[in-house]
């Protein structure tokens, strides 16, 4: 078990954003955190990484309590891909090199440079290597952010809406990449996601949040119409296509 979460609670202005969240993630697994807007998906991800301080509960990474770890130690165990990255006049190579920050004091070793080079090659980003990230498209920038997370060499990736604002091809490329690296290296990923169908296609497990609590969780292939309908409040149909379930949203009845 890579990640284990017990009874996690997070309050904002004494209002409970997350209530008693419990779940765990195994090696080689991709978990999709799903749910409507504003339900606390991103907050949950930030609590796992201690970007936000949880009010209650434990987060164990590789059986170590993150409460007893400083930020650098946490950064060696899990990497975080934010939804919005600020850009600077920095080459992709240097931006990715930042991922080595938890492992270096100040001086960059040849080993660090080699690792960045290896990740760039693995992700086929050679053509972007010396391009400034402030001149990149959204898809390119997202690939750089993911490369930065890979070069951190952690056992767990936390990705906040990795494919929002990206076109179909970039979505497929980026999630395909995450899936490939997770399976090849036997590490894990937790992603918050909007699009149910991409979640179905690229993750192993799902976790539905509603009003800050877990509404349902399980194997992604076992998502039921009933569950989706009650979380999102819209009728859906689930079809099978090439071995993957596909969710088709229906019409909203004019009840309101």
């Amino acid at each position: 078990m890579i990640l284990n979460i017990n009874d996690l609670t997070f309050k904002y202005n004494s209002h409970n954003v997350l209530n008693n969240i419990n779940f765990s993630v195994e090696k080689g697994e991709i978990l999709a955190i799903l749910g409507p807007n504003g339900v606390g998906k991103t907050t949950l991800l930030k609590c796992i990484n201690s970007i936000l301080k949880r009010d209650k509960g434990d987060v164990y990474i590789n059986d170590k309590d993150t409460l007893n770890m400083n930020v650098t130690e946490i950064a060696k165990q899990m990497s975080y891909v934010a939804q919005n990255n600020d850009t600077a006049k920095l080459t992709a190579f240097d931006a990715i090199l930042l991922g080595r920050r938890p492992h270096i004091k100040w001086r960059v070793s040849k080993d660090d440079i080699k690792k960045v080079d290896a990740v760039i090659k693995r992700l086929n980003l050679e053509h972007l290597s010396l391009k400034y990230i402030d001149q990149m498209s959204g898809g390119e920038l997202q690939k750089v952010s993911i490369a930065r997370a890979f070069v951190q060499e952690t056992d767990l990736f936390l990705l906040d809406e990795p494919t929002s604002n990206l076109d179909l091809k970039n979505q497929a490329e980026i999630l395909g990449l995450v899936k490939r690296v997770v399976k090849e290296h036997n590490v894990s990923a937790v992603m918050t996601m909007h699009d149910l169908n991409t979640a179905l296609r690229y993750s192993d497990k799902y976790l539905f949040l509603q009003n800050g609590s877990i509404y349902g969780a399980g194997d992604i292939k076992e998502i039921s119409c009933l569950m989706v309908e009650s979380v999102y409040g819209i009728p859906v149909e689930i079809l099978q296509h090439n071995g993957y379930p596909v969710i088709i949203p229906g019409e909203l009845t004019n009840a309101a």
Partner: peptide, 23 residues
Amino acid sequence: FMNAWNYNAADAGDETAKGVGVK
């Protein structure tokens, strides 16, 4: 100078900075 890496991290945004272990 000692903080050069931290300022690079700050440029990437607060969440990313924390993600790579910068206070």
